[in-house]
Simulated assay, not measured.
Amino acid sequence: MLSRRLFLKSSALIGCSAAAHPLLSPMAFAALPGENRLVVIILRGAMDGLDVFQPYGDSNLRGLRRTLSLGPDGGAADLDGFFALHPALAPLMPLWRSGELAFAPAVSTPYRDQRSHFDGQDLLEAGTGTDVEAMRLRDGWLNRLLQAMPGVQSETAYSVGLDDMRILDGAAPAKSWAPQTRFRLSAQGQRLLADVWHDDPLFRPAGDQAIDIINGNLARIETEAGPTRDAEALARFTADRLNAETRIASFSISGWDSHARQGPVIERALQRLGAAILTLRADLGTNWRRTTVLAMTEFGRTARENGTGGTDHGTGGAMLVAGGNIRGGRAIGGWPGLAEGDLYAGRDLMPLRDIRAHAAWVMRDLFDIPRDVLERSVFPGLDMGDSPRILG
């Protein structure tokens, strides 16, 4: 059976062309009642939270990292006298000072020890405690959130990318699309195709969606050339939908796997993340005041810098939080320390809290979802613990 995704890709044969990009990211959207908005950014490749939010106040850091995470001495911006922000995110410092940026150090999913990107990302997007649960459910935690909310509608967007966003896969209505897609089809061609697929239950819905792209403004979201153009396009498209009926959006930014020469690798990735957040803030306008952004990665990286100037797959990482409705300008949660006896398995930052708990409390406060639903259905087996008071 031909899928809608394959239909849209195959539409190139009738005048549809997608701008190819190796890092093209699918996006997913859903509409629901209310004015609060949630954006989840998946950082694929395991972001090094110790380098993004550098704990230079921990005296053990210098012994673990010779060239990375050197704090203000290395050009990072001091945040609170203990943590410093990587220089590549310096454009976000005004958000920190205005209380629109925060982070949670030492967090992780329940995934441990195997350190596979694919498995880690699956568990992050599935929102389950184990890979067995993830395989059983086969859907994502944002979709399970939608299933728990009355009045949810499918605010249409589309996916034309390399991967699906599992985080929104499931029974609740949600679609996806990636920007920088162009469709060229005359009015006569549209009428001809509509006649062809009119009585076809498979092609008619997908075809109608394609025509919506052609005639709507979704395909006209453009961005200037540059190293952050893809991230800006993702954010611009997201803001466009959030300013309309969409209330939940998710997209991914890749390029965080930094086994060697971490400096330039993470700099490029952070520039893209920073550009995405600033584009969201600018394009959302007054709706930024009702928006929460969670940037999450599958796991952290080793506490020790390796011999090639990089870091390897680890455990504890960090979550970035932004938005006009958060209690920012702070680190959310405690700090486990970097002494030898404090490390997980003698090599990784020890996670102090399940990253799912932070996401659950955000959804509790944004959308008034009952705690038992979050712990039982959205994130099976989760103990949310005490509220981290992420929202203002």
Results as ranks from 00 to 15, higher is better:
A88Q: 03
A19L: 15
K175M: 15
R301G: 02
D365G: 04
A276Y: 01
A225L: 12
G75Q: 12
E35T: 13
L64Y: 08
I326M: 06
G328W: 00
I221W: 00
M384S: 07
V321F: 08
Q121H: 07
A31T: 01
H198G: 13
W141N: 13
P173H: 00
D163L: 10
G75F: 10
G300W: 01
D73N: 12
N36I: 03
Q190A: 14
A275V: 07
S116F: 04
W141M: 03
K175H: 15
L366G: 09
S11G: 13
V196H: 03
T223G: 04
P201D: 08
D58S: 01
D199I: 00
L278Y: 01
T292G: 01
H259T: 03
R356Q: 10
G81H: 13
A104G: 12
H198T: 14
N243I: 03
A187S: 15
A345G: 13
L38P: 02
N306L: 07
D283T: 11
E298K: 02
R138Q: 14
G300T: 07
A249H: 06
L192C: 00
A206P: 04
T128I: 10
M319K: 11
T302K: 14
S59F: 06
M1P: 08
D386W: 03
S176L: 10
F367R: 07
G189A: 09
A244I: 05
L193P: 12
T228G: 06
L64V: 03
A225K: 11
P173E: 00
W141C: 03
L280I: 05
L89C: 11
A20D: 15
Q262P: 08
G226S: 05
D365V: 08
R364G: 05
Q147Y: 02
N325L: 11
G99A: 03
